[in-house]
C-alpha cells in the first residue's frame, strides 16, 4: 500500500514535469509576444523590471497579419465547406452503394494519405495558369480545389467510417417505407452521423489552416494565408522576434480555440482514425 502511494506520487511528479516541458515552448512564445524586443535580450523569463504590452500584436496586425488572417479564413472555411459537402456525398456512396471502379477509386483516394504533396505540386503551377486560377481572387478557388482534392481521401475514409456505423436496420426500415437513396442520405444518415461529420470538419479545418506548402507554392502576396506570412517573417537574419512571436500566437489561436471548445469531437475523430485503422 505504502509502496503504491509512492508510485502514485512519482507518477504525478513525472507527468507534471513532462507537462511543464511540453508547455514551455508555447508559454515562451506567449511571453515574448507581450514584451518589448529589447527586454527579451536578457532572456524572456527574466522578469525583473518587466513591462507587459500588447504593442507587438498591434504592430503585427497592422503590418500584414490582418490581411493574412482574412485570407486564411477564406481558404480554410471554403475548403472545409466544399470538402465536407462533396466528401459526405461520396462517403455515402462508398459505404452504402455499389458502383463500377469503386475499388480502384477507393485505392487512389487512400494514396493521398501517404504520398507527399510534392507529387502534385509542381505541375499544379502551370495547370493553374491554364485554368486561369493563377491571379486575383481566382487563386482562392484554385487553392480550395487543391485542398479538397488532397483532403478527399481523409473525407471519404473518416466520414465513411462514421456512416458505416449507422445501424443497417434503420436504413432498411427507411427503404421499406419507400425512401430513396437521397432521402436516406439526407434524413437518416446525415442526422445520425452528424457528430462524425463535425469531427471531420474540425480536423480538416486544422489541417487546411496549418498548411504551408500548397499556399507557399500557388499563391501570390495578395492571397497568401497566415502560415506563409509567418514563414516569411521568420528569418534567422532578422531580429524581429516581437512581431514573429505575436504572429505565431495569432496563427495558432483559431485551431487551438476550436480544439479547446470542441475537444470531444476532435478526439473522437482521431480515435476513429486510430482504433479501427
Amino acid at each position: 500500500m505504502r509502496q503504491r502511494r509512492w508510485g502514485i506520487v512519482a507518477l504525478y511528479t513525472g507527468l507534471t514535469a513532462l507537462s511543464v516541458v511540453w508547455l514551455v515552448p508555447v508559454a515562451t512564445a506567449a511571453m515574448i509576444s507581450i514584451r518589448p524586443l529589447d527586454e527579451i535580450r536578457d532572456g524572456p523569463w527574466n522578469l525583473s523590471g518587466a513591462t507587459f504590452t500588447l504593442d507587438n500584436y498591434v504592430r503585427a496586425w497592422q503590418q500584414g497579419v490582418s490581411g493574412f488572417a482574412l485570407n486564411s479564413f477564406i481558404i480554410t472555411l471554403g475548403s472545409v465547406a466544399l470538402t465536407v459537402v462533396v466528401g459526405a456525398l461520396a462517403a455515402y456512396a462508398f459505404v452504402h452503394l455499389k458502383f463500377r471502379f469503386q475499388g480502384v477509386a477507393f485505392f487512389l483516394l487512400m494514396t493521398t494519405m501517404i504520398v507527399p504533396i510534392q507529387l502534385i505540386i509542381i505541375p499544379l503551377l502551370p495547370w493553374f495558369r491554364t485554368l486561369g486560377l493563377d491571379n486575383g481572387n481566382w487563386q482562392f478557388v484554385g487553392v480550395v480545389l487543391v485542398h479538397t482534392g488532397f483532403g478527399a481521401g481523409w473525407a471519404v475514409f473518416m466520414m465513411g467510417s462514421f456512416f458505416a456505423a449507422v445501424p443497417r436496420e434503420i436504413l432498411e426500415s427507411g427503404r421499406i417505407d419507400g425512401a430513396g437513396e437521397w432521402a436516406q442520405f439526407r434524413h437518416l444518415v446525415l442526422p445520425l452521423a452528424l457528430p462524425g461529420i463535425i469531427s471531420f470538419a474540425i480536423i480538416d479545418f486544422v489541417f487546411v489552416w496549418n498548411d504551408l506548402l500548397v499556399a507557399l507554392t500557388l499563391l501570390d502576396r495578395s492571397t497568401q494565408p497566415l502560415q506563409v506570412g509567418l514563414a516569411n517573417l521568420q528569418s534567422p537574419h532578422l531580429s524581429q522576434q516581437d512581431l514573429v512571436s505575436a504572429g505565431a500566437i495569432m496563427a495558432i489561436l483559431p485551431p487551438v480555440l476550436l480544439f479547446a471548445s470542441l475537444n470531444r469531437y476532435y478526439v473522437r475523430g482521431l480515435f476513429a482514425g486510430g482504433v479501427k485503422g
Binding site: 515552448p25 512564445a29 509567418l230 521568420q234
Partner: peptide
C-alpha cells in the same frame, strides 16, 4: 493543433 510553421517559429525561441 499548432501549425508546423508556428511550431518551427516557437522552437527558434
Amino acid at each position: 493543433t499548432i501549425s508546423l510553421v508556428a511550431a518551427g517559429v516557437i522552437w527558434t525561441f
